[in-house]
Simulated scan of single mutants.
Amino acid sequence: EPQTHDEVAKLARTTNETLTALEASVDRQRRFVADASHELRSPIASLRTQLEVGEAHPELLDVPGAVADTVRLQQLAADLLLLARLDAGEQAGRTRLDLAALVREEVSQRSTDRIPVTADVRGSVEVAGSRGQLARVLGNLLDNAQRHAAGEVRATVRREGGQVVLAVADDGSGVPETERERIFERFVRLDDARSRDDGGAGLGLAIARDVAHRHGGTLEVGRAEAGGALFELRLPAAGRDPERPVPTGASALGAAPAQVLGDRRE
């Protein structure tokens, strides 16, 4: 870069900044593809082994295990497709929906959870967006709480000025303050000792934050009164024109989703 302040120097600096951003995007894409391949390899290998054993010795076929691996693959594929859509810049819908009613409905369908979810939700609070994507956020937060809670999971919805706040809290060990941003990165699992089947692929919280940003909101984690994690999703109340900030780590796939995952859309 020329040590001047003319147009040539500005052009050189702008070009270098653009190339640096492109290089970082390519690096994120490569890491994402490598991580996704690693996550897919384990259930595929397990499923293939079970089917080969079943072919040679039908009496030894572990049907429940094969079904579990298939479900895991299906969930992982759905998560990867949703991330690809978000990275491609898909905007949330503008449908008005009652977030309180959504929480009540989703919680009522989780009767088989390890820990019953307590829903402290009253009245009606409306937001604008995609019902399916917001239900995915709630489901991911509740799944995360179920994995770490000792005996309590609580979901609440409240209105704060021009915002609607959905909070999910548990009484587990919580999230260390130094890790509270890292947990929203893709394929991150703080407890490396836990099994992949129990811990998931590490995409749930990344998806939840991306969806929150696409709805003009935020998703943060803190400490719950019971000592565990407290996740708070804040969304503009319906009737406001939400700003749409660019999600942290956006375009991690760049133009790759269609190449890596195909052109299929959910």
Rank of each mutant, 00 (worst) to 15 (best):
R122G: 08
R122V: 12
S124Q: 09
E126H: 13
E126G: 00
V127P: 01
A128F: 00
G129N: 00
G129S: 03
S130D: 12
S130I: 01
L134G: 02
L134W: 00
A135S: 10
R136C: 03
V137M: 02
V137G: 02
G139E: 10
N140P: 03
N140H: 09
L141C: 01
L141Q: 00
L142M: 13
L142K: 01
L142V: 15
D143Q: 07
D143W: 05
N144S: 08
A145I: 10
Q146N: 03
R147N: 06
H148N: 06
H148L: 10
A149N: 09
A149M: 11
A150C: 10
G151F: 08
G151M: 09
E152L: 15
E152C: 09
V153L: 03
R154M: 10
R154T: 13
R154G: 05
A155V: 15
A155M: 01
A155I: 06
A155L: 08
A155H: 04
A155S: 06
A155C: 12
V157E: 04
V157Y: 02
R158Y: 03
R158T: 12
R159H: 05
E160N: 10
G161T: 08
G161W: 11
G162R: 13
Q163P: 03
Q163C: 07
V164D: 00
V164H: 00
V165R: 08
L166P: 02
L166F: 04
A167P: 02
A167I: 04
V168I: 14
A169K: 10
A169S: 12
A169R: 14
G172S: 12
G172M: 13
S173D: 15
S173I: 09
G174I: 12
G174P: 07
V175C: 09
P176A: 14
T178K: 11
T178Y: 09
T178G: 14
T178F: 06
T178H: 12
E179H: 13
E179I: 08
E179D: 15
E179V: 11
E179A: 15
R180W: 05
E181G: 15
E181C: 03
R182V: 13
F184Q: 04
E185H: 08
E185S: 12
F187I: 11
F187T: 09
V188P: 03
V188N: 01
V188I: 13
R189Q: 11
R189P: 05
L190P: 00
L190F: 14
D191S: 13
D191E: 15
D192E: 14
R194W: 11
R194P: 06
R196A: 15
R196D: 15
D197F: 14
D197W: 12
D197K: 10
G199D: 14
G199T: 11
G200I: 12
A201Q: 08
A201E: 13
A201T: 13
G202Y: 12
G202E: 09
L203Q: 07
G204R: 04
L205E: 00
A206C: 15
A206Q: 02
I207N: 00
A208H: 05
A208D: 04
R209W: 06
D210T: 07
A212C: 01
A212K: 01
A212I: 08
A212E: 00
H213Y: 14
R214S: 08
R214G: 00
R214D: 01
H215L: 05
G217W: 05
G217E: 03
T218V: 07
T218W: 02
L219C: 05
L219M: 02
L219I: 08
E220V: 13
V221E: 04
V221A: 11
G222P: 04
R223G: 02
A224S: 15
G228T: 14
G228E: 09
A229W: 05
